[in-house]
């Protein structure tokens, strides 16, 4: 009904036909020297994200586009590129969204700074509240509490709780 499909759908759709071609391409890639193994390719691909499908690591993405990118990584590896060079190439070509974490620059620092700051603030608030709550107890509640605790405090507590329920 619609000729136009969203990118993600389309890329998925392309696999069927493409399988045949890629199998052959894999072989040509294998013929190169030195040959990067699938594992070496996947190790780098795992750290990159498919630029057209959302939040899918490149090593598990089944689309034709991703297959091309994995082949690209293989090619770059065989040309002696380092892991960082390949990652940088992908960032330059397809934008920072291809890496799993925003690079630590500019506004992106917020990702790393804000949560610890909020958590710390929460911890301080909680600690202060706890101290405020525990203070009056030492003066006001002490005389009232029973001083002579039973020897086996635990068993007594348990028994008491169970009795309540009978």
């Amino acid at each position: 009904m619609k000729n136009y499909l969203r990118i993600t759908h389309y890329a998925l759709l392309a696999i069927g036909l493409a399988l045949l071609f890629t199998a052959q391409r894999n072989q040509t890639a294998l013929a190169q020297n030195p040959t990067p193994t699938d594992d070496e390719v996947n190790r780098i691909a795992h750290q990159l994200y498919c630029p057209v499908c959302e939040n899918t690591p490149l090593d598990v993405c089944p689309t034709e586009a991703c297959r091309q990118w994995r082949d690209l990584i293989r090619q770059q590896l065989s040309q002696g590129w380092t892991e960082d060079q390949i990652k940088q190439y992908f960032i330059d070509q397809y934008g920072v969204r291809v890496v799993g974490e925003p690079p630590r620059t500019g506004l992106n620092w917020l990702v790393y700074i804000l949560p610890p700051a909020i958590i710390l603030a929460g911890a301080i608030l909680l600690f202060r509240a706890l101290r405020a709550w525990t203070k009056p107890s030492t003066t006001a509640a002490a005389p009232r509490s029973k001083k002579e605790a039973p020897k086996d405090e635990y068993v007594a507590r348990l028994e008491e709780e169970l009795k309540k329920r009978k």
Partner: peptide
């Protein structure tokens, strides 16, 4: 030409190709 860094496609806010 290649859309390096997807800058142009983001400028047009494309939703897909073509």
């Amino acid at each position: 030409g290649p859309d390096v860094g997807t800058k142009v496609s983001q400028l047009f806010r494309i939703k897909g190709v073509p």
